[in-house]
Amino acid sequence: MSLYERFRDLVRAETPVALATVIDGPNVGAKLMVVREGNTESVEGSLGNADLDRVASRDVAGELEAGRTGVRHYGPEGQATPEDLVDTPTVSVFIETFAPPPQMWIFGAVDFTAALGRVAKVLGYRVTVCDAREIFATKRRFPMADEVVVSWPAPMFERRGHTLGPRDAVCILTHDPKFDVPAIQGALATTVGYIGVMGSRKTHNKRLERLAEVGVNQPHDLERIMSPIGLDLGGRTPEETAVAICAEIIARRTGHGATSLKNTSGSIHS
C-alpha cells in the first residue's frame, strides 16, 4: 500500500491525520504523515532527511493536536531558529490537518429534525439523531443521519458527552420537558459550542421554570442556551427553520452579528 492509499483510507475512516509536504527546497513533494489512532501517535513517510523528520514530526503532531493547517520553514537538517536560517537554503513544508468532522446531535425525531439533518450534512457535520421513542427514531425516517440512536438524553450524554467540543452542536427539538430538561442538563455538562432549544417564547419561559427546579439557573449556563432557537429570518417551513438554526450556529462561532454584509463594513473573508 502506498502512502497515499494509507492516507486516503485514514481520511475516509475519519482518523485524525496530518500530512506534511515539502513544497520548496530539496526533495520537493516528499511527505511525512502523523496519525493519531486512539492514544497512540505514529509517524510514517519522510521529508528526505532524518534530522528534519525528527523536528518536523514534532511540529506536525502539534498542528494535528490544534487542528491547524499552514506552512513552516526549516533548515535542510531541521534547523528551526531564525538565526540558523540566515543565508542557508530553507525547506518549506505545508502541513495539512485532517480532523474528524464536527458533530451535531439532534434530540427529537420530528419533522424539523429531517430538514435540520439535511442542512447540517451540507455544512459537513456528522449528524446523530436521538429520541427515546423506538418507532420514531428510525434510520428510514432520517436517511441523512449518520446515526440514529434510541435513547433517553441522560445515558447518551453519560456515554458520549465527552466526545463533544467547541466545534460541535446540540439541537434539542422535542417540545417535551421530560426530554428537553435532561438534554439541556446533559449538554451544559459538556464543552459543546452550541446548545439550541426549540419552542415558542412561552414554551421557553415554562422551560426556564423547569430548569430552575432542577438547579439550572446560573447566568453562565442560561447564557449558553439558545432559545428560542435560530436567527430571526422570518421563515416558517422546516427547511427555512433549519437554515435559521445553522446560520445561528455559524454566527455564534464567528462572533458576528449576522446582519446583511451590505449594511456592514470591513473584510468579508477575515
Binding site: 513544497i23 493547517t69 499552514g70 506552512v71 505545508f94 495539512e96 490537518t97 473584510s267 468579508i268 473573508h269
Partner: peptide, 15 residues
C-alpha cells in the same frame, strides 16, 4: 493542487 497560503482576501482556505 492544494491552496497552501492566502494573503489578503481569498475565497478558499489553505487545504
Amino acid at each position: 493542487a492544494r491552496v497552501v497560503k492566502i494573503e489578503g482576501s481569498g475565497p478558499r482556505d489553505p487545504g
